[in-house]
Amino acid sequence: MNVFRLLGDISHLLAIIILLLKIWKTRSCAGISGRSQVLFAVVYTARYLDLFTSYISAYNSIMKLVFLAASYGTIYLMFIKFKASYDHNHDTFRIEFLILPCVLLSLLINHEFSPLEILWTFSIYLESVAILPQLFMVSKTGEAESITSHYLFALGSYRALYILNWIYRYYAESHYDVIAIVAGIVQTVLYCDFFYLYITKGIYGQ
């Protein structure tokens, strides 16, 4: 564990908590892409199956459970409890165009052709594009509530911090994982446009 990865995990946790609070407090999921939330739940499910087979540390297991619970909790709030406020009309990104290529790519490019490894690779590829429906929805509505933009900033920062973690681990532990690094860079690059807007103008309201 290093400070970059710790800050990244905290940023990730913060993003998920901000989202849950936003939906719970405002009793509305307006402006939030349910499709992205479904993709995140798929990502965590495919990646954290090793929760039952290999124990890394208490921190690792607890965080995996928290991410899984929070992502399914968000889906419950969006599609069941506050279903009436879900903005179908603007959440239209075709997620099958994200899932299928990730499935194919994970079968073609992976470290080991075993079920757990393929699922992990699929989750890494899918996570890198999982935010697209949300960014697409923000661009379509032309704005985002301030709380939603804070959520996106924290979520985008988490993987950017992980890139620093991978640089650190490469020099300090000569450990690196090309698949995670390339996907992580793609994921962070996708936020660049949003980061620019968030930092220069705070995109909410304009």
């Binding site: 990865r5 990730h12 090793d50 890394i56 991410f67 994982d177």
Partner: peptide, 10 residues
């Protein structure tokens, strides 16, 4: 198997 152990990141 070594890869499983190495996967200590979330």
């Amino acid at each position: 198997v070594s890869r499983r152990k190495e996967k200590d990141e979330l």
